[in-house]
């Protein structure tokens, strides 16, 4: 049968083509997609285990930034031992923003927790719990090595409706008692569980971020 079933001129076809709704993307979707593709493009590199003593996969800009960071963190270190919640949260938000600015959200870009978790072996001195929440609407998109309060920490990156969440996790007690705060428009949620302390940073609204924290705590 040839292409011309001649349904095109049919009244029904015309009715459907003229009357049915044609949906379009909302205003935020395109920029959200572009942001995520930029991250993909930036983090596409051979995933080799890093030789000891080198930060894996950072560009020259990243290395320069890391040196600058190391200096400022070394200074921070002396104060950092007794860091207040405020200083910690400032550092966490700075890290989140910087990761977005240099399009370096993930070192390992994978939605598979069985890829992300072992990637941290040899890079941090603990094994971060990595949970997959894609079924609940918070897909894991990768992991990143970060440096908070004078130590290498694991950052796990999740996405929710176009917003990115940086989940920092490291062993130890929580700093201060404050659970939720907001700075520079970013929400920070902190809690402790199973000997690990967690901090979730995102521009996602605090209600959905709260759901994220609850899902992780289960």
């Amino acid at each position: 049968m040839a292409e011309s079933m001649d349904d095109r001129d049919d009244e029904l076809s015309r009715l459907v083509r003229d009357r049915a709704t044609r949906y379009r993307a909302g205003p935020a979707l395109e920029s959200s997609i572009r942001a995520e593709l930029a991250l993909q493009a930036a983090s596409v590199r051979p995933q080799r285990p890093a030789p000891a003593g080198r930060w894996p996969g950072w560009s020259l800009m990243g290395i320069g930034f890391a040196c600058g960071l190391a200096v400022s963190v070394a200074l921070h270190f002396w104060i950092g031992r007794g860091a207040t919640a405020d200083q910690l949260e400032a550092e966490l938000v700075d890290s989140h923003v910087r990761a977005l600015m240099v399009s370096h959200l993930t070192d390992v870009a994978s939605t598979d927790q069985h890829t992300v978790k072992p990637w941290f072996q040899g890079r941090v001195d603990y094994s971060p719990p990595v949970k997959d929440l894609a079924a609940e609407g918070y897909p894991l998109i990768g992991g990143r090595l970060d440096y908070i309060e004078g130590r290498a920490v694991a950052a796990l990156i999740y996405r929710r409706h176009g917003h990115f969440i940086n989940l920092f996790v490291w062993p130890g007690p929580p700093v201060g008692t404050r659970e939720t705060s907001s700075r520079q428009g970013y929400n920070v949620m902190r809690w402790a569980s199973g000997g690990m302390t967690y901090a979730a940073v995102s521009d996602l609204n605090d209600q959905e971020l709260g759901v994220f924290a609850t899902l992780l705590r289960q």
């Binding site: 949906y23 993307a25 909302g26 979707l29 997609i33 995520e36 593709l37 993909q40 493009a41 176009g162």
Partner: peptide, 14 residues
């Protein structure tokens, strides 16, 4: 729909 489209675009890019 928008979430699935975002996932699809990511896959398309890969």
């Amino acid at each position: 729909a928008e979430d699935l489209v975002q996932d699809a675009f990511l896959r398309a890019f890969r």
